[in-house]
């Protein structure tokens, strides 16, 4: 029984309601996409958690390398001109 072929792992994303993004909620095992969708429905939406499901084969997900997180993400830190508070305008203008 231990040399049995493994049933693939899927990552599950649920959209809680229209207007929101699908959000990662967990994973499960299923032999194919339809069974994965059904299992996701039965496992992750028993309490009205959503109205749409995505499933993605875990092995198909590419992730950024944590070793490169400094070069990936730190350079954005000093680009403060991308934020509205960088610019001074007269108070009288009010909200802009």
């Amino acid at each position: 029984m231990s040399d049995e072929k493994m049933i693939p792992l899927w990552e599950v994303f649920i959209r809680p309601r229209n207007g929101l993004n699908h959000k990662h909620v967990g994973s499960l095992h299923a032999a194919d996409g339809e069974l994965a969708l059904q299992a996701a429905r039965d496992v992750y939406t028993r309490r009205e958690e959503g109205n749409s499901i995505w499933v993605v084969r875990a092995e198909d997900i590419l992730a950024s390398d944590p070793d490169k997180s400094a070069e990936n993400f730190d350079p954005a830190a000093d680009k403060i001109y991308r934020h509205p508070s960088f610019y001074d305008i007269p108070d009288e203008v009010g909200h802009m």
Partner: peptide, 11 residues
Amino acid sequence: MYSQGLIGANT
């Protein structure tokens, strides 16, 4: 939760 696949060779 992330998959095993996300764990790189550098663990």
